[in-house]
Structures are given as C-alpha cells and as structure tokens.
C-alpha cells in the first residue's frame, strides 16, 4: 500500500508565553495549553493532500512521548489521518532516539514518504528528519515549500538562505516542512467523533528495541537577557542626529 508516515510532537502551544521556572530546572508547562507542533500540522496536511490527490492510500501518524500525547494523535486522526501509532516514552527523548524509533516504524510500515516538521517549537533542535534520512540511507528534502510527486520521485522546492532550491529525490524519502508549504485545515466536530473509532496502537521503546539514551543532559534553563530600555526621539531630524552621535551614520 502507498503509505505516508507523519511524525507529530506534542508541544506547548505557540501562543503561550514561555516562562522559565525560578529554580532553572525547566520551563513552566503545568496547566499550559498543549498542541501539535505547528510544523507537524503542516506535515500532516501535506500528507492528507497527497492522499486526496490519489498519490497515496494511507496516512499514518506517529508520536513518541508520554500518555498525554494521545490527545494530539486524536486531533491528527480528526484532521484525517487513517491510523495512529503511539510510542510511549517518558522524560526528554533526544532526536537520535526519536529517529531510531522512526527507523523501526519505517521498516515495519514501508512508507513512500516520511513527512516531518522542520523543527519542534519547544526544543528547536531541527534534527529528526535529517537523522532519520541518514539512518535509513534515503534522501532528505528539508524546509519544503512545495512538493510534487512524479514517477518514483518527489520534486521538492526548499526554502534556503539564498532563495528557493529545487531538488529531485527518489522515493522513499524524508521531507521536512517549512511554514509556507500549506495551511492546515480546521478540525470539524463530526470528524472528532469519527476519530474516536480510528485505530490507535500503543507501542513501547523497549518492545521496539530502542534504548532511551541520554547524551545531551540539560544542566539549567535561564530566561534570556533583556535589552536595556532605549530613548525616544520626536522626529526624523532627532533620529538622524542620534545615529550620527553614536557613530552609526
């Protein structure tokens, strides 16, 4: 079956104002709204559109994380994913561990494409897609803003520093999404009801033979340093004078 695997991560919602705990042990996540990582939502939307165009038959959504992640998997199913896989894991899961889990699932599910967000907006690592592609020894097309599937290959336009780069990658391949790839659909209430009946399988790291290695130990968290408050000027002439005085013009 032509299948697309989509990875999602449960993260603090992008609208939440992040606060570092007073003791520096982390950021405050208690009672905070949690959502699907926005880049992963774009990944799922792209997979659904490819399926709707007939170029794939099944969209499988996967996450690695604690029991609470089921909420986000149910949301993904309500968006339109056909089934979900939940790999239970507590604590911080490093990108290399997530990539190893995805590799195991890729071997099992044999997808045409794996689509992931380019980064998660919590740890901002931006590694998982490239790591999976390396371990799988398959192509990667990161920061995608356009994806077209042709015979056995994907033509992907990438947002790079210089502008837009286009690559052809043989499938199977890993694609990671940038913001302009698409606008994810809204979930409708009847779909939420339907999603409750869709299959959601739970797996464990140990059953998959993946060790939750910790090689990047968090030592402390700090709030960023604030800039000093500046001065206000009243018109263009004062502004130009202030810039000249500071040697900037």
């Amino acid at each position: 079956m032509k299948r697309i695997l989509v990875g999602i991560k449960r993260v603090v919602d992008y609208n939440v104002r992040i606060r570092v705990k007073a003791d520096g042990s982390g950021v405050i996540t208690d009672g905070v709204k949690m959502s699907i990582n926005p880049f992963d939502e774009i990944a799922l939307e792209e997979a659904l559109r490819i399926r709707e165009r007939g170029a794939a038959e099944e969209v499988v959504v996967v996450t690695v994380g604690p029991a609470d992640c089921q909420q986000q998997l149910r949301t993904a199913l309500a968006m339109g994913a056909d089934r979900a896989l939940h790999v239970l894991a507590d604590g911080v899961i490093e990108p290399l561990v997530t990539a190893r889990v995805l590799l195991k699932l890729v071997e099992r599910e044999q997808p045409l494409l794996v689509i992931l967000g380019k980064q998660a907006i919590d740890d901002d690592n931006g590694q998982t897609g490239q790591l999976l592609a390396a371990l799988w020894q398959r192509p990667q097309a990161t920061y995608a803003s356009k994806v077209e599937l042709h015979d056995g290959a994907a033509r992907v336009t990438r947002e790079v520093d210089a502008g837009l780069e286009t690559l052809d990658v043989d499938m199977p391949a890993v694609i990671t999404t940038d913001l302009r790839l698409n606008e994810p659909r809204y979930v409708k209430l009847p779909d939420i009801m339907k999603a409750k009946k869709k299959p959601l399988d739970t797996l464990t790291l140990s059953a998959m033979g993946v060790e939750p290695r910790v090689q990047l130990k968090p030592v402390s968290f700090q709030a960023p340093a604030n800039r000093k408050k500046g001065v206000m000027v009243k018109d263009a002439a004062e502004l130009v004078a202030a810039l000249k005085q500071r040697g900037l013009l």
């Binding site: 570092v20 740890d123 901002d124």
Partner: peptide
Amino acid sequence: RFQRPIYAGNAILTVEVAAGA
C-alpha cells in the same frame, strides 16, 4: 558544555554532552 536557545529564544538551555561522545 554549551548554551543554546530553545522555545524561539524565550529560554536559554545549558546542555552537557555525555563524556566520550
């Protein structure tokens, strides 16, 4: 041991890489 921004720069994480890696 390195510092890196997380949460879009709203927090700074100090991280220690495991010995030998």
